[in-house]
């Protein structure tokens, strides 16, 4: 059996007696696209630095295709895009890519062609000092695609990208994953990664609080569906008394129901006939789901 792309087992790292990462364990298989979510300071970057071998965990074990973090085998397998990536200002985009290709013992000519792939073909001969944040980020992505990395670590890769670049970005990630590489990307918002990943890990205060597909997370959260009923003039009290639910103002009432009760609730609402002016159904948003999971430990802690 080939070893998993990345295995973390009971990883703990403490800074100044404050646990930054606390007993985190998960396994990533080849070709998976995984999102690592967490608010600022949840321990995402610390986790990445331990996977790269820059920091050593106080406890636990990390394996990259069976190799130790920081070993030559691990570094050859990993491509990394740091958060807020930086390059030397006086070098051009092409020079940066050739530099990293040589460090990775890959073909510099092929590396420069990656500029077109990330939409920087025109800017390749310009100095990085004049690039926008989004352009630097795309140059960083091109750098991470040099050669054929087997594990791609992207730390908040889409922050600072406009919606079109972001879409283009996820297309590239899909291609990379289709070639069999494992992609682990971090983000602070579930809305950003949405359906673009196979699995979602949520990190909160250093603890791993969720590790599943978005669908399963949605079910596990069991968040209620919100029905907002808008009635005719001054009808809120009557609607509230007949349906239950909470009165928001003199015309609107808000009801919460489980997914299985949704249809019967709607039937009850429509049965009220002329009293009802409008009904607004809102499913729990991605942010609600994220807050549900990351909030749980926040209360405990």
């Amino acid at each position: 059996m080939t070893p998993a792309a990345l295995t973390l087992d009971g990883i703990t790292k403490t800074f100044d007696k404050r646990p930054a990462v606390d007993g985190v364990g998960f396994t990533l298989e080849a070709g998976e696209r995984i999102a690592l979510l967490g608010h600022n300071g949840a321990g995402k970057t610390t986790l990445f630095k331990m996977i790269l071998g820059f920091l050593h965990p106080d406890a636990g074990d990390i394996r990259i295709f069976g190799a130790e973090p920081g070993s030559a085998a691990a570094r050859n397998a990993i491509a990394y895009l740091p958060e807020a990536v930086a390059f030397h200002k006086s070098l051009t985009g092409e020079e940066v890519l050739r530099f990293y290709a040589r460090l990775k013992s890959e073909d510099p000519v092929a590396a420069v062609k990656l500029l077109d792939r990330v939409g920087l073909g025109e800017a390749g001969r310009r100095r990085v000092g004049g690039y926008s944040k989004g352009m630097r980020q795309r140059l960083g992505l091109a750098q991470a695609l040099i050669g054929s990395p087997r594990l791609v670590l992207l730390d908040e890769p889409t922050s600072g990208l406009d919606p079109i670049s972001r879409q283009n970005f996820y297309e590239i990630i899909d291609e990379v994953a289709a070639r069999g590489a494992t992609v682990l990307l971090s983000s602070h918002a579930l809305t950003e990664v949405e359906a673009k990943t196979d699995r979602i890990l949520i990190l909160s205060k250093g603890k791993l609080v969720a590790n599943d597909t978005l669908l399963s997370l949605r079910e596990a959260a069991g968040l209620p569906i919100r029905l907002k009923v808008q009635g005719a003039e001054d009808s809120a009290d009557e609607i509230a008394s007949r349906l239950g639910g909470e009165r928001i103002n003199c015309r609107s009432v808000e009801l919460l129901c489980t997914p299985s009760d949704k249809v019967s609730q709607l039937a009850a609402i429509t049965a009220l006939g002329p009293l009802i002016a409008d009904v607004d159904v809102s499913l729990p948003s991605l942010d609600d789901i994220y807050r549900h999971f990351s909030g749980e430990t926040a209360k405990e802690g």
Partner: peptide, 13 residues
């Protein structure tokens, strides 16, 4: 300071 070392050290050098 500039944050360029992070990327260089993640390479096999």
């Amino acid at each position: 300071d500039r944050g360029t070392l992070l990327l260089v050290f993640s390479c096999p050098i």
